[in-house]
Design a protein around this nucleic acid. Structure first.
Lengths: 150, 150
DNA sequence: TCGATTAGTCTTGATGTCGAGAGAACGCCG
DNA sequence: CGGCGTTCTCTCGACATCAAGACTAATCGA
């Protein structure tokens, strides 16, 4: 048993990747139990809940989906009566996506349950550990963004 | 400016998710520069390089793809002459996927370049920080796996 | 004011992956 | 030795996403 694990770039990324997928699986299951077919459908509603009515592209940037995908997701949500499209009063090119009352109610309840589930994942960590993890991940994320821009 | 960031479960997961996608984008670009169409194609060859010849399902478990996806990826690699299928001598159900010499040479060179690229992402971290990040991520991953099994 | 550029949305076609199921082979147990 | 559940691969249909292009509207410069 070596005390020092392999912390090379590729291996750190592997661990990151593996844990990510484990959490994501848990995440997806939690969301499906709440009645959503796909992660994107939940994500769109959540953005609308926390950030207010948004144009299509703006939602897409936040959840890392293209406008085409958002169009489809909004179509699905609209078919269920959870959101509605309203053309912006100030810019007629943009379509603002609004939560309906039903949608608002649904996503509020779902998000709170989902938040509890996610809390479970990190439940064993002290607040120091949370802070450290947060700081390190944030830093790596920024670094990767910089590299992507370069 | 608060000194303590929001380290709730949902927010930690959000940071994890965002940084993951930043790295993944960088990862994908690096791999595409090396001439691979998709991440899966690279991943399959990499598994074969580091773990030796493998049956289809075994590859799939390692890279988190279903057997159907691996079949397709192996088809692509086989068409390029990078791998070949050999039926197992001991179990006639299984098809062992082997690297060809061309494939071996290609993935060795590609992996080493790719490893350098990934090293860049974590280049700013001290070895203590690497260890910490490694330990925390590993722990969360295990926790999520446990929750998935439960 | 007019023309060109930019921004925003939607449509369409392609693609990689998944999920379920079929078919073959294995191995255990009675 | 014979049956039965299991394991393995592949096929096929469905699907969410993406990428590129079309179309409309706004903006900015001349």
């Amino acid at each position: 048993m070596s005390e020092n694990p392999d912390t090379s770039g590729p291996h750190l990324w592997l661990v990151w990747w593996k844990a990510y997928h484990s959490i994501e699986k848990y995440d997806r299951q939690s969301i499906q139990k709440l009645g959503f077919a796909t992660l994107s459908d939940f994500a769109v509603l959540e953005v609308l809940l926390h950030k207010g009515p948004q144009p299509v592209n703006s939602i897409g940037r936040r959840v890392l989906l293209t406008s085409g995908s958002i169009t489809a997701a909004v179509d699905r949500a609209e078919a269920k009566g959870l959101v509605e499209r309203r053309s912006s009063p100030t810019d007629r090119r943009v379509v603002e996506v609004h939560l309906t009352e039903a949608g608002q109610e649904l996503i509020e309840r779902a998000f709170s349950k989902h938040a509890e589930a996610l809390e479970e994942v990190f439940a064993e960590f002290s607040s120091e550990e949370r802070d450290t993890l947060y700081r390190l991940m944030k830093s790596v994320g920024k670094r990767a963004d910089d590299l992507n821009r370069a």
